[in-house]
Simulated assay, not measured.
Amino acid sequence: MQMEQLQKDMIAAMKAKDKPRKDAISSVVSAVKKVAIDEGCRDDIKEELVDRVILKELKSVKEQIDTCPADRQDLKAEYQLRYDVINEYAPQLMSEDEVKAVLTEKFADVVATKNKGQIMKAVMAELKGKADGKVINQVVSQLCQ
Rank of each mutant, 00 (worst) to 15 (best):
D84E: 12
V85A: 04
V85L: 03
V85N: 01
I86Q: 03
I86K: 01
I86R: 02
I86T: 05
N87Q: 11
N87K: 13
E88N: 08
E88P: 00
E88K: 02
Y89M: 03
Y89H: 03
Y89N: 01
Y89W: 03
Y89D: 04
A90Y: 00
A90V: 01
A90R: 01
A90H: 00
P91F: 01
P91R: 01
P91W: 03
P91H: 03
P91G: 04
P91I: 01
P91V: 02
Q92H: 09
Q92Y: 00
Q92D: 13
Q92W: 00
L93Q: 13
L93W: 07
M94N: 04
M94W: 04
M94E: 04
M94F: 07
E96D: 10
E96Y: 13
E96C: 04
E96Q: 11
E96L: 10
E96N: 06
D97Y: 07
D97V: 03
E98G: 12
E98S: 12
E98W: 11
V99W: 02
K100I: 06
K100V: 05
K100C: 11
K100P: 03
A101Q: 14
A101V: 11
V102T: 15
V102I: 15
V102D: 15
V102Q: 14
V102P: 11
L103V: 12
L103D: 08
L103G: 09
T104W: 09
T104Q: 15
T104D: 12
E105D: 15
E105F: 11
E105G: 07
K106F: 13
K106C: 13
F107C: 05
F107P: 02
A108L: 13
A108G: 07
A108F: 09
D109V: 06
D109N: 10
D109I: 04
D109W: 00
V110T: 07
V110S: 02
V110I: 10
V111G: 06
V111R: 06
V111I: 15
V111N: 06
V111Q: 07
V111P: 02
A112G: 08
A112N: 10
A112D: 09
T113K: 13
K114M: 10
K114R: 10
N115R: 14
N115S: 09
N115L: 09
N115G: 00
K116M: 14
G117Q: 10
G117C: 08
G117T: 12
G117V: 10
Q118Y: 15
Q118G: 03
I119M: 06
I119L: 05
I119Y: 08
I119Q: 02
I119F: 08
M120C: 00
M120L: 14
M120V: 08
K121I: 06
K121S: 06
A122D: 06
A122C: 00
V123M: 12
V123P: 13
V123G: 09
M124C: 07
M124W: 06
M124S: 12
M124K: 13
M124H: 06
A125Y: 09
A125P: 08
A125H: 11
E126Q: 13
E126L: 05
E126R: 09
L127C: 05
L127H: 02
K128F: 02
K128D: 00
